[in-house]
């Protein structure tokens, strides 16, 4: 039946919807801070997707404490590693975007990117 898989994998579906929301925010918002929030929603959606894919119901985090080394006991650790790497990347990108926003705000006292562009055109620099 169509839609059955969608219900079973609702975590992935939610991740995709969040990705779309974040993407649209980053693309269409005029306010720079809201754009950055959109960026973070988008990246977080990818991490949710990865976490959802790496988790296997009923298994443990892949840390050996009681000597059990059987593969069947643990979840897949690679997506978690990818999420960590992705978080590092998105933190640095967010920091860069925020610093650029601060620069622009100090110069033009507005966060509206279109208004800044309009003023730049008027300045004719």
């Amino acid at each position: 039946m169509f839609g059955e898989n969608l219900f079973v994998n609702y975590g992935e579906a939610v991740a995709m919807i969040l990705f779309g929301i974040g993407f649209a925010n980053l693309l269409f918002q005029k306010n720079l801070i809201k754009k950055i929030i959109g960026l973070n929603i988008m990246d977080t959606a990818v991490y949710l997707f990865l976490a959802e894919k790496g988790y296997i119901t009923g298994r443990l985090a892949p840390i050996v404490v009681n000597g059990v080394q059987d593969v069947e006991t643990y979840i897949n650790p690679i997506p978690s590693g990818l999420v960590l790497t992705g978080i590092v990347v998105s933190v640095s990108v967010t920091a860069l975007m925020l610093s650029l926003t601060v620069r622009l705000y100090r110069r033009y006292h507005t966060l509206d990117l279109d208004e800044i562009s309009a003023r730049l055109r008027k300045e004719g620099l």
Binding site: F23, M97, L120
Partner: peptide
């Protein structure tokens, strides 16, 4: 100057949209 910072912001926004899509693609392929 104002121009370059604005250009950098616009560059970053488009690039981040692109890398977001690329990351999603890589994760799905994985």
């Amino acid at each position: 100057n104002g121009r370059t910072i604005e250009a950098a912001v616009r560059y970053m926004i488009m690039s981040l949209l692109g890398s977001g899509l690329l990351l999603m693609g890589i994760c799905m392929l994985y």
